[in-house]
């Protein structure tokens, strides 16, 4: 009896040791503070942004498909800088709001869990996210410059997906599958060219919301209940 108690204590020690080893490995190599809520909200902003773009577009032109050829070659589109400027502003606002929300919520979550946010793990994750993402951003601006409007939405999805896959090595693994989904959607969008806005809303809107809920459900629900 006495012997058994000692063994159990020892065993508990070993389990604690393994837990601590795993915890340290995770904390030192992966950025895990990103809040699921930021995904949900980013998705909502994207849907609102897409709705505005659609509303603005249909207010100014005929149906999307009727104008398909003009969209690709783009004389109408560029005849009025204010017209395409609206889309650039719209997309810029969606990105800015998403970034600000993500940063605020992540800082809040890290503070609640007593973690530091801006450490070497976070920096490494962001660099790996930023390299393909900035490349994609510049690429899309060049598409705009060359008036290849129809290719912009699929390219955004493709580059965003590849960026997420690249960053997933330094954060939660699930991000890889989210990135893959965006890449696949981007390829489909590249096939059904001319429906870019729809696919853009699906990828940046719906997928973000679904992924955000999934992350929240998997990683945050319990801790939220405890702190409540």
């Amino acid at each position: 009896m006495h012997y058994k108690v000692i063994c159990m204590n020892k065993n508990g020690d070993y389990i604690d040791q393994l837990h601590e080893i795993r915890g340290l490995m995770e904390r030192s190599s992966r950025f895990i503070s990103l809040s699921g809520w930021s995904g949900i909200l980013a998705g909502c902003y994207a849907l609102i942004g897409a709705w505005f773009a659609r509303w603005y577009y249909f207010g100014h032109l005929g149906t999307y498909m009727d104008r398909f050829n003009e969209l690709i070659s783009g004389p109408d589109f560029f005849s009025d800088p204010g017209f395409y400027g609206f889309f650039v502003l719209d997309a810029g606002l969606v990105v800015s709001f998403s970034l600000i929300t993500g940063i605020i919520l992540t800082i809040r979550r890290a503070k609640r869990k007593g973690q530091r946010i801006w450490d070497r793990v976070a920096q490494r994750m962001l660099i790996n996210l930023a390299i393909p993402l900035v490349t994609g951003g510049v690429f899309c601006l060049l598409l705009l410059h060359h008036r290849l409007i129809g290719l912009i939405a699929p390219s955004m999805l493709l580059f965003y997906g590849l960026s997420l896959i690249n960053a997933s090595k330094y954060t939660i693994h699930d991000l890889k599958y989210f990135g893959l989904a965006q890449v696949l959607l981007g390829l489909v969008a590249m096939y059904f060219i001319g429906h870019g806005l729809l696919f853009w809303a699906l990828g940046f809107g719906l997928f973000h919301i679904l992924y955000g809920f999934y992350m929240w459900f998997k990683y945050e629900r319990e801790s939220a209940n405890i702190s409540a």
Binding site: Q17, E20, I21, L24, M25, S28, R120
Partner: peptide, 17 residues
């Protein structure tokens, strides 16, 4: 044990980290 755990999954880690 903690030092080894961190170094096992990272390339170079500085003292302060």
């Amino acid at each position: 044990l903690g030092i080894m755990s961190v170094l096992a999954v990272n390339d170079w880690v500085d003292f302060n980290s």
